[in-house]
Design a protein around this nucleic acid. Structure first.
Lengths: 335, 335
DNA sequence: TTGTAAGCGTTATCAC
DNA sequence: GTGATAACGCTTACAA
């Protein structure tokens, strides 16, 4: 029924072990032998059983993505990037989307690690900074890579963009347009990126000699609804902002929707800017100025780090971001 | 190191086989024995190895989702629904996002089936109707469930909404608002749903005694860009439509963006409607009237069918849809 | 450079 | 009801 190593070894006229050697790219296989085996593999259409490999060896050729993110676009891009990289190595990606508020997250991850014997994990915020998870993985000796981690950066290899610098750049851009009352909708409090982005915003204002106005800084949760609600609060202020900088694109979309509902013209009466975490910007009305970050590339890089040789030191790989001005951001008559 | 069945059996004072029986809910286990085993499992925190189970038995407790869909929201909702259902059964979902135009799709699926020995597959359009894939699965005797399949419906269990009826309902709604020139942006030609939705649109027009106008029917590809382009073409017509019905929400968003760019007021000057395949509507400007379908629930149902007893006949499970009028769709002064 | 034998952790088979 | 024992398909020692 199933084609096994045994069939291949018989076809190639070598031992099972030799086939295994070829499969795993081990040294000490004669060139001619190797070719003969490869021919047999191709002929019989042999595909090694993940289960058997995982059971017998140290590798399962599977990694898992632990993704608990409010943005479907982000998740999708991330998965695609990781999958692309893994495909080159013959490694499978198991996607494990988790509910935002799952009470069983730790247990689920423990379960995953124990049951599937994955070769490694990729974590995205906010799980990147859950001590319980990090402890668990360390205890189990499971290799993992984190995307945009906060806190202890030496704990694992990781990929990131400089969120603070990016937020500073965007804020400077808005300042250059003449804005003085620039509001910020913060990200989800659990995410370290939220604080980093706030810091960049605050730094730019400080450098411009503008005092931080607490009224102009609102909590968000990285999703549409919270962006929409924050915009309502901001536009209800006695002196509303002339620009709103949302810490994610879902929230920026929420801000835009609110402005639209209230009959406020963007960008004539209000500039809207945001982090484009998830490539959602293309599905949202222009004009929207965004910090574009390569989510898919970030996933690719994360997988690359995970698949790297085990003896490499934990590497931190930074990815570039861009300020993308869509349409006109408008020049404001400061109120 | 690892906790195995052996450890559990020792702890419970029974044989390995008995532990296995409890694990698999087999009959012929004494109540007392069962409890003792369960206690030992909990105490030792035992989690059976997927690899060993897959290798030794007929089940791997893993299923895979084959998803090649242009909408990240759809993918995300689908994954979540399936995962929720599987969690109840202790089954793991392997997500396999594929690139739209992957030339290696068939091979990849074959690889997946052979390598991971999954218990079953869930297919989403358009893979649901790829003969090569269906043949492959039949040949391998792999169980699968299809979401919104076209063609031969008896081939497998499936979930669906009545796309034709839904499109008819939406078109009737637009007609009732006074529209006479209603344009349709079709879905991707590879998707059977595209044709079903067109049929509903055509049926409603016919019932209203309105001739089908080829100029008002445009090809789309279920994504933002094609919706945007189709809207441009439609609005360039000598007599443009007063309403545009997009076959997906991504395309509806594209239509809205184009209208916005051209300074056309929605809904005062143009009504926009769409299928809300992916819950994206909440991220898009109102006013947008949509056919909402429960993507997550569809995933849940698909998993349910896949995990059902093997001897059940292929079941077709229909899910309800809703016409959601967001804000006012406006009454049109027919042009 | 190649082959042999002993597992890996579970389920299936068949006894008891 | 319960328990030995042989698979399952591969990798890891260790020999040759």
């Amino acid at each position: 029924m199933r084609v096994t190593i045994k069939d291949v070894s018989r076809e190639a006229g070598v031992s099972i072990k030799t086939v295994s050697r070829v499969l795993n790219n081990e040294r000490y296989v004669g060139a001619a032998t190797r070719e003969r085996v490869q021919a047999a593999v191709a002929l019989l259409n042999f595909r090694p059983s993940v289960a058997a490999r995982a059971l017998a060896g140290k590798r399962s050729f599977q990694i898992a993505l632990i993704c608990d993110n409010p943005s479907p676009y982000f998740v999708y891009e991330m998965q695609s990037g990781i999958r692309d990289r893994c495909a080159k190595e013959g490694v499978r990606m198991i996607a494990q989307p988790y509910d935002r508020d799952s009470a069983t997250l730790i247990e689920d991850i423990e379960n995953l690690v124990d049951a599937t014997s994955v070769d490694g994990l990729i974590l995205t915020p906010p799980v990147t900074d859950y001590d319980a998870v990090l402890d668990l993985l360390a205890r189990r000796g499971v290799r993992f890579v984190r995307v945009s981690p906060g806190g202890d950066v030496a704990l694992s290899a990781s990929t990131f963009i400089d969120n603070e610098a990016a937020a500073r750049l965007m804020t400077e851009h808005l300042l250059a347009l003449g804005h003085r009352r620039i509001a910020l909708v913060r990200g989800h409090p659990d995410y370290v990126t939220s604080a980093q982005r706030f810091d960049g915003y605050a730094a730019a204002l400080a450098a411009a000699g503008i005092a931080l106005d607490d009224d102009l800084v609102r909590e968000g949760r990285y999703d549409f609804a919270s962006g929409s609600a924050a915009a309502d609060a901001l536009l209800d202020l006695p002196i509303p902002p002339s620009a709103i900088f949302a810490s994610s694109d879902d929230m920026a979309a929420g801000v835009l929707a609110t402005a639209h509902r209230r009959g406020i013209k963007v960008p004539e009466q209000l500039s809207v800017a945001g982090f484009d975490d998830s490539a959602l910007a293309s599905v949202v009305w222009p004009p929207l100025t965004t910090i574009r970050q390569p989510t898919r590339a970030m996933g690719y890089a994360a997988a690359d780090l995970l698949l790297a040789a085990a003896d490499m030191p934990p590497e931190r790989r930074e990815l570039p971001y861009e300020l993308v001005v869509r349409g006109s951001t408008g020049l404001i008559s400061p109120r």
